[in-house]
Design a protein around this nucleic acid. Sequence first.
RNA 1: GGCGCCAUCGUCUAAGGGUUAGGACGGAGCCCUCUCAAGGCUCUAAUAGGGGUUCGAAUCCCCUUGGCGCUACCA
Length: 476
Amino acid sequence: MLRVRFAPSPTGYLHIGSARTFIFNWLYARRNGGTMILRLDDTDVERNTQASVDSIYDGLNWLDLSWDEFYRQSDRLDLHRAAAATILEKGLAYRDFTPAAGPDAEEKAHDGMAWRANPGQREMSKEESDARAAAGEPFVIRYRVPRDTGRVVSFKDSVYGDQSKSCDDIEDFALLRSSGMPTYHLASCADDADLHISNIIRGQDHLTNTFKHVLIFEALGAAIPQFAHLPLLIAPDGAKLSKRKHGPVVSVTTYRDAGFLPHSYVNFLCLLGWSPKDNREQMTRQEIIDIFSFEGINRSNAVVNFTEEDPIDPKALWLNGQHLRSLPVAEIMPAVTKVLENAGYTIPADAAHFTSVVDLIRARYTTLLDFAGKGRPYFSDEFTIEPAAMEKLDVAGARALLAKLGERLAADAEFTEASVEAHLRALATERGVKAGVLINGSRAALTGQAVGPSAFHLFTAVGRERAIARLKAVAQ
RNA sequence: GGCGCCAUCGUCUAAGGGUUAGGACGGAGCCCUCUCAAGGCUCUAAUAGGGGUUCGAAUCCCCUUGGCGCUACCA
C-alpha cells in the first residue's frame, strides 16, 4: 500500500518550495494509486500560527491539490511520548540532564571536533537517571547513537542513490524535549511509522537527517520507508529562498494574486528540478501524472529566476501565457470571470459573446490580470485613449473618416466582420486613402489602444452600438 | 571546523563513454501582417579548474575550487 505525506510546519506562509514538495508527493500518489496525507507538523508550539495554517490551506486549495487523510501532530503527542518511552526502555536512548544550550552555543561544534554528546550523561547509571527524573529534575531524552562499533547507517535514496554515514559522525540527537514535547525527528518518525508511510518525499535539506531517522525507525521496530529527496529551490544569489530576504516571490499566494492559472503554476513548479526528458514543457495535469517518476528528478538545486525589476520568473509567465491561450476557452472562463468581477466589471450577459471576446484577446495576454487591465475596453465603456492610439487618430482626416464610417455602419442593418470590412474598404477607396488609416484608426477608436486583435474582429467583439458610438466619439 | 550533497548556455534542462553538446525561457533579427501578440525561421550562449582511466570523457575515478545542507531541547 503506497502512502505518502506532506508534513509542513505551520510557521509561515505556504512557500513555493513546500508547494512543490506537496506536488511531487501528490504526483507520486496519484500516479501509483497511493494515498496522499496532509499532516501538520506543529510540535513547535512557540512558532505555530493559525494564519500559517490558513495560508497552507489557501495555497493548496488554489493550486487545486487534494489530500485523502489529514492529521495534526499536536493531536498525537501521546503516541510520540510513548515512542520516546519505548526507545528509552530498550536502552537505545538516555536522559540528559544538561541545561539547554540554545542556538548561540554553536561554538561547541567548532573546536575541531564535532559535538556528539554532553559529558557524563550517556554513561549515567539507570538508577541515578531514574532517581533524578523521579526527583523532578528536567531532562531531554537523547538517542544513544552506537559509538566505536564501526556501525554505518545506510539507505538508498530514490533520487540521490546509495547513502551511508558512520555513526561516529552522528551526534546523540534529542527525541523528547525537557518540556515533554517531541522533537521534529521523533514526532515525524513516530507518525510516519504509525501512519504506515511507505515513501518519504521531502526536501534535500533532510538528506543528512535521514540517517537519524533510520535509527529511530529501527529503534521503533518499524519498517523503514523508501526515501526520495528533492533538490532545493534557491534564489538567484544562491541562497535558500526566504521570505525575509526575497520577499513575496516565495509565497504561493503571490502567484495567485498575479493572475496565474493554478495548473499552469503547478506545471512550472514541476519543471524546477524535474524533467519529463522529452523536451515537453507545457503539460496538462493528467499528462504530468502519467509521466511522473523519480528518474526525472535532478540532484542539483534549481534557481527560481527573478530580479527586483521582474519579481516573477519569466518562464513561469511564458508558461502561463501558453496555458492561457491553448486551453479550451471554456476552462479559463471561470477564472477570467472572477478576475473581472473582482476588478468591478459587469460581466456581459451574453455568455457566448463573452466567451468569444475572451477567446479573441487571450492570445495577447500572459496573466489573468491582463483581462482586467489591457482588456478594459472590451468590458467597459470607460477607458482612456493611449498616446500611441491618439497618434493613429490624429492622422489627417482620420477622425472625420471614422465618423463617416460610423454613419454608414449605423445605416446598415447587417453587422458582421465581412460587412464592416466592405464598408471600411469602400470608404477608403472612395476617399482615396489607404485602408490602413481606417483600420488602425478604428482600433484606436474602439479600444483606445494602438495594438490588439484584427480591427474587423474588434467591431463584432465590441458590438454594434458601442462600436458606432465610439467611432462617433472620436470625431469630437 | 566535522560530516554529507551538488556542479552543462544568464535561467530551467536533455545527452549517463563516440552527437556540429539538443530543447525551452530571456535577448537579437527575419518572415507572416491592418497594429500588437501568437506562429514559423535564424542568431546569441554552456560541460568550474587540474590530473588520471580509455582508441575515445560533459559522461567513470581522484584532487582542487565553488555552492548548498546538516551539525539546536527549529523543522
